[in-house]
Amino acid sequence: MITLSSHVLDTTLGKPAKKLPLSLTLPDGSLHNGITDEDGRCNACGVEAFLPGVYQLRFHCEAYLTEKHGDSFYPFVDIHFSMEENGGHYHVPLLLSPYGFSSYRGS
């Protein structure tokens, strides 16, 4: 079984990025939308089952960064990643600031 979650942390404020919209593109091209909760987390974007393949998470961060920091170099951040059969749980965190970001495969 493959599962997916994400977490967005505002590294400038040292807090979760609340209510940040994101979209998930599946290998078949279908698009699913989500939004981070009060803890900056989003689980699966409403997708019930994942198949192996290449996925894209797009974090729509411009409005959030402009509101919180007065500026945004990034209108969005795209992260492409592969999920494999029997890959278990995939956690894709985004560490975000107005002028930088980082991501990794979390647990």
Score class of each variant (00 low, 15 high):
1 M>C: 09
2 I>C: 00
2 I>M: 08
3 T>K: 08
3 T>F: 07
5 S>C: 11
5 S>Y: 11
5 S>K: 13
6 S>R: 05
7 H>D: 13
7 H>Y: 14
8 V>P: 03
9 L>Q: 15
10 D>F: 01
11 T>A: 09
11 T>W: 12
12 T>M: 12
12 T>R: 13
12 T>E: 14
12 T>D: 13
12 T>V: 13
12 T>Y: 12
12 T>W: 10
13 L>S: 10
14 G>Q: 03
14 G>K: 02
15 K>L: 13
16 P>T: 03
16 P>Q: 06
16 P>Y: 07
17 A>C: 07
17 A>W: 06
17 A>Y: 01
18 K>P: 08
21 P>F: 04
23 S>L: 12
23 S>G: 07
24 L>G: 00
25 T>N: 09
25 T>L: 13
26 L>V: 01
26 L>S: 00
27 P>M: 07
27 P>N: 06
28 D>T: 01
29 G>I: 01
30 S>K: 12
30 S>G: 04
31 L>F: 01
33 N>T: 08
36 T>V: 00
36 T>D: 05
38 E>K: 09
39 D>I: 00
39 D>A: 10
39 D>C: 02
40 G>F: 04
40 G>E: 09
41 R>P: 06
41 R>Y: 13
41 R>G: 13
42 C>H: 07
43 N>S: 13
44 A>S: 13
44 A>R: 06
44 A>N: 12
44 A>P: 02
46 G>E: 11
46 G>K: 05
47 V>K: 03
48 E>W: 07
49 A>W: 12
52 P>Q: 10
52 P>H: 04
53 G>H: 07
53 G>K: 00
53 G>I: 04
54 V>H: 12
54 V>C: 14
55 Y>F: 05
55 Y>D: 05
55 Y>R: 00
55 Y>E: 06
57 L>W: 06
57 L>C: 03
58 R>I: 01
60 H>M: 14
60 H>I: 11
60 H>E: 15
61 C>W: 07
62 E>G: 10
64 Y>N: 03
64 Y>L: 01
64 Y>H: 01
64 Y>R: 00
67 E>D: 13
68 K>I: 08
69 H>N: 06
70 G>S: 01
71 D>E: 15
72 S>L: 05
72 S>T: 08
73 F>P: 07
74 Y>N: 07
75 P>L: 08
75 P>G: 02
75 P>K: 10
75 P>N: 09
76 F>W: 14
76 F>Y: 15
77 V>Q: 11
77 V>F: 08
78 D>W: 04
79 I>E: 12
79 I>T: 10
79 I>H: 09
79 I>Q: 11
80 H>S: 14
80 H>R: 14
81 F>R: 00
81 F>T: 00
82 S>M: 11
83 M>T: 00
84 E>A: 09
86 N>L: 06
86 N>G: 07
87 G>E: 04
87 G>W: 03
87 G>A: 02
88 G>F: 02
88 G>C: 01
90 Y>H: 07
90 Y>P: 01
91 H>N: 11
92 V>K: 13
92 V>I: 15
92 V>T: 12
94 L>Q: 04
94 L>H: 02
94 L>A: 02
95 L>P: 04
97 S>F: 10
97 S>M: 09
98 P>N: 06
98 P>W: 11
99 Y>H: 14
100 G>R: 10
100 G>A: 15
101 F>N: 14
102 S>Q: 15
102 S>P: 04
103 S>V: 07
104 Y>H: 14
104 Y>I: 10
106 G>H: 11
